[in-house]
Nucleic acid binder design. Structure first.
Length: 576
RNA sequence: GCGCCCGUAGCUCAGCUGGAUAGAGUACUUGGCUUCGAACCAAGGGGUCGGGAGUUCGAAUCUCUCCGGGCGUGCCA
C-alpha cells in the first residue's frame, strides 16, 4: 500500500500541479507519507499540501481538493480527509488495512521506498580499546552501540563489516610489557610499584602464567631499579629502555605473551557480550616507519609530497588547510611517528578497501580528534564525507542511586565481564542502548537487576513472554494459530496493529540516524500498548471470529518485539 | 580564549531532517486478580520546553544572543 500511495502522490506532483521543475523537485524530496499515530487520523497521512502551499504561496486547502479526489478514486481507499493545518489523512478499507499487515508480516521491507532504496558497503569500527587490560563498563557502551548499529544497517540491506582496531604498537604496549616484567621478577613492592605502570591484578595473573628461562639475579634487580627519575613518566620510560636493552629475549617473550593474553581476554568478554567482529586489524601490520616500503611509510610519503613541511626537526601535516585548528606533527623530532601517523595510514587502508562509508565509534573525549582525522583524509585525497564519527559518552554506573566507585589508577575498576556476570548480556545491552549514545547515561545496576516496574527491560520481555504463554495455552486447547486476518468487524486490535506496522519506519529511522535508542523507546511503547490491550480483552472466551484476529494480532506483535530486540542483540524470552 | 555537547513535569528521560492537543517512566493518591502470566492495568493532579530576540501561515525543533552545566583543546594514545 505504501508504494502504491506514494506513486499516486508523486504522480500528483508531476502531472497535476502547475509547478516549475525546481518546485517539483523540492516537493518530491520533502514530502512525507507516514503512518498516523492514531486511527482517528486514518491510516496514512501526508504533509504534501503543507509543503506545496509554502512553495506556491497558496492555501493548503486550495491544493488539497484535487489530491483528495484523486486519492478517493482509488479502490483500496475508503475516505480521504483534510485535517489540522493541512494534512491529508487517508483511510484504507478495513480489508486492505488488515491485508497490509499480513503482507508486512511476511515481508518486513514492504514499506521500503523502492525509488530511493540504496545498498551500501559500510564498515563500522568500534571498541578498539587498547589491549593493555580488561574491558571496563565504559567500553561496554561502545560495544553495544556499534554492534546494534551493525545489525540495524544490515537489516536495512547494507553490507556491514565490523572491525576492531588493535593498538598493538607503541608506548602503551611497552608499559604493559614492562609492568608484567616488574611483577614477574618482583622488582618492586606493592607500595613502591611505579605509578605509571599498570597496577591491576590481571598483570600479576599474566606474570604468573609466563615461563621464562633467563636468569635474573638479585644484583641485576638492584641495578635495574637504581637511579631512576622521580618523575612517573620518565621513570617508566627509563625502566622500559633498560629492560629492552639488557633482557631483550625476556622482553620480547613477555610482550608477545602479555599482548596475546589480553587480546584473548578481550575477545572472550566480547563473545560473552555477543559482539563478534568480522575483522581484527593490528596497528603493527602497518609496519615501521624505518621500513620505506611499509604501509605507514607510504601513506606518510603520499601526504608529505604536498601537504607537509619540516619545522623544529619534526614533520608537520598542514591540516589547517583542511579545516583543522592547527597543524599537526606526524613525525617526531626523534624520527618516531605519532599516533596520528598510524591513524592516517589506517584510514587510508580502510578507504582503499572500497567501503562507501566508514563509521568510527569513538569515546566522546576524542571529539577534538575528529577535525584532525578529517583533515588527514582530505590531505590524502579522499572525501571526509566518506567517514562518519559517532561519539559515545561514558556511562555512569550507579547502584540504587549512588555512584559505583571506579578507580583506574589502582586497577580496581568494574569490568565489562563483571557487569555481564551480574545482570546478563541482554539486560546490559538494553540499558546501554536506552539513551542516545553521545549523551551521558546513568546506568543503575540495582534497577537492571530488580524485577520491579522500574525495570524497563523486563517490562518489554514480559510482553513477549506473555504472548508466548497465550499462544501455548491456545495450542493446548487444540486450536491452531491463524495464518491471516478474517473480516470480522471487531476493531479492538487496530490501534495496536497500526503501531506494529510502524516498526519498519522506526527501524529505518534508527538506521539512518545511527541511533538504536529509537528502537528501545519503540519497544517500550509497543509493549505498553500490548499490556493495555491484553488487560482489555478476554482472549480465550472471545467469539471465534474475533478470537482469530486477536490471536493473529498477538502473533504479529510478538514477532515485531522479537525482531526489534534481535536488532539490539537481545534474545527475546519465551518465559521468565 | 576557541571548539563540540547538554538544559523539556519533583526526579530519570523521549520528542529536535519545522507541523495536528508537548509525551513516557518514576514518585504521590485511589481502584482492579475464584478463568488466558498482577514482573500487569485503570483513574487523578503535575510544564514560562533555561531567559530573550529573530525567521515562518506554524518553533521544544531552525538562526542569533545571554545564563547555567559537561567535555576537548600534547612532538599522549
Amino acid at each position: 500500500m505504501y508504494n502504491q500511495i506514494l506513486s499516486s502522490l508523486n504522480d500528483f506532483i508531476n502531472n497535476d500541479l502547475s509547478f516549475d521543475s525546481d518546485q517539483k523537485k523540492t516537493l518530491l524530496n520533502k514530502h512525507k507519507l507516514t503512518l498516523t499515530d492514531s486511527l482517528q487520523k486514518g491510516h496514512w497521512t501526508t504533509n504534501i499540501c503543507l509543503i506545496a502551499s509554502n512553495l506556491a504561496k497558496k492555501k493548503p486547502q486550495d491544493i488539497a481538493a484535487a489530491l483528495i479526489s484523486k486519492l478517493e478514486s482509488q479502490r483500496d481507499i475508503s475516505k480521504v480527509e483534510l485535517a489540522g493545518p493541512g494534512f491529508i489523512n487517508i483511510f484504507l478499507t478495513r480489508k486492505v488495512f488488515l491485508k497490509q499487515i499480513d503482507d508486512a508480516h511476511k515481508n518486513p521491507n514492504s514499506f521500503v521506498d523502492s525509488s530511493r532504496a540504496s545498498k551500501e558497503k559500510i564498515q563500522i569500527e568500534f571498541v578498539s580499546a587498547n589491549p593493555t587490560g580488561p574491558l571496563h563498563v565504559g567500553h561496554g557502551r561502545g560495544a553495544a552501540y556499534g554492534d546494534a548499529i551493525g545489525r540495524i544497517l544490515q537489516r536495512l540491506g547494507h553490507e556491514v563489516s565490523k572491525e576492531y582496531y588493535v593498538n598493538d604498537a607503541g608506548r602503551q604496549i611497552d608499559i604493559l610489557a614492562c609492568s608484567i616484567f616488574l611483577r614477574k621478577f618482583e622488582c618492586f613492592g606493592d607500595e613502591s610499584f611505579p605509578n605509571a605502570a599498570y597496577k591491576g591484578s590481571y598483570i600479576i595473573e599474566i606474570a604468573m602464567s609466563i615461563e621464562i628461562d633467563e636468569a635474573f639475579p638479585q644484583s641485576d634487580k638492584e641495578k635495574l631499579i637504581s637511579n631512576l627519575s622521580d618523575d612517573d613518566e620518565e621513570k617508566i620510560d627509563e625502566l622500559i629502555e633498560r629492560i629492552k636493552t639488557n633482557y631483550s629475549s625476556s622482553w620480547l617473550l613477555i610482550r608477545d605473551f602479555g599482548l596475546e593474553y589480553v587480546i584473548k581476554s578481550i575477545k572472550g568478554d566480547l563473545t560473552q557480550f555477543k559482539v563478534i567482529f568480522d575483522n581484527w586489524f593490528f596497528e603493527s601490520s602497518l609496519g615501521e616507519l624505518t621500513d620505506k616500503k611499509s604501509e605507514i611509510s607510504q601513506a606518510l610519503d603520499q601526504v608529505k609530497k604536498e601537504h607537509a613541511y619540516e619545522k623544529n626537526g619534526a614533520v608537520w601535516l598542514e591540516s589547517t588547510k583542511f579545516g583543522d585548528d592547527k597543524d599537526r606533527v606526524i613525525i617526531r623530532e626523534d624520527g618516531r611517528g605519532t599516533y596520528l601517523s598510524a591513524d592516517l595510514a589506517y584510514h587510508r587502508n580502510k578507504l582503499d578497501r572500497g567501503f562507501d562509508t566508514i563509521i568510527n565509534v569513538w569515546g566522546s573525549d576524542h571529539h577534538g580528534y575528529i577535525k584532525r582525522i578529517e583533515a588527514t583524509i582530505e590531505a590524502m585525497g579522499y572525501s571526509k564525507k566518506q567517514m562518519q564519527v559517532q561519539l559515545v559518552q561514558f556511562a555512569n554506573l550507579l547502584e540504587n542511586g549512588s555512584k559505583v566507585k571506579m578507580s583506574t589508577r589502582s586497577g580496581n575498576f568494574y569490568t565489562l565481564k563483571q557487569l555481564i556476570d551480574d545482570i546478563g548480556p541482554d539486560a546490559s545491552r538494553f540499558y546501554y542502548l536506552s539513551k542516545q549514545a553521545d549523551q551521558h547515561l546513568d546506568f543503575d545496576i540495582g534497577v537492571a537487576r530488580s524485577n520491579s516496574k522500574d525495570n524497563l527491560y523486563y517490562y518489554v520481555q514480559y510482553a513477549h513472554a506473555r504472548i508466548c504463554s497465550v499462544e501455548k495455552k491456545y495450542l493446548e486447547l487444540g486450536m491452531s494459530l491463524p495464518s491471516k486476518f478474517n473480516d470480522a468487524d471487531f476493531e479492538g486490535c487496530d490501534e495496536l496493529l497500526q503501531m506494529a506496522l510502524n516498526a519498519q519506519f522506526v527501524i529505518k529511522s534508527s538506521g539512518e540516524n545511527l541511533q538504536p535508542h529509537i528502537i528501545v523507546y519503540y519497544l517500550r511503547d509497543i509493549s505498553q500498548s500490548f499490556h493495555q490491550f491484553y488487560n482489555s480483552v478476554n482472549i480465550l472466551n472471545a467469539k471465534k471470529s474475533e478470537q482469530n484476529n486477536i490471536v493473529r494480532t498477538l502473533m504479529i506483535v510478538k514477532s515485531v518485539i522479537a525482531s526489534s530486540l534481535e536488532l539490539l542483540g537481545i534474545e527475546p524470552l519465551d518465559s521468565m
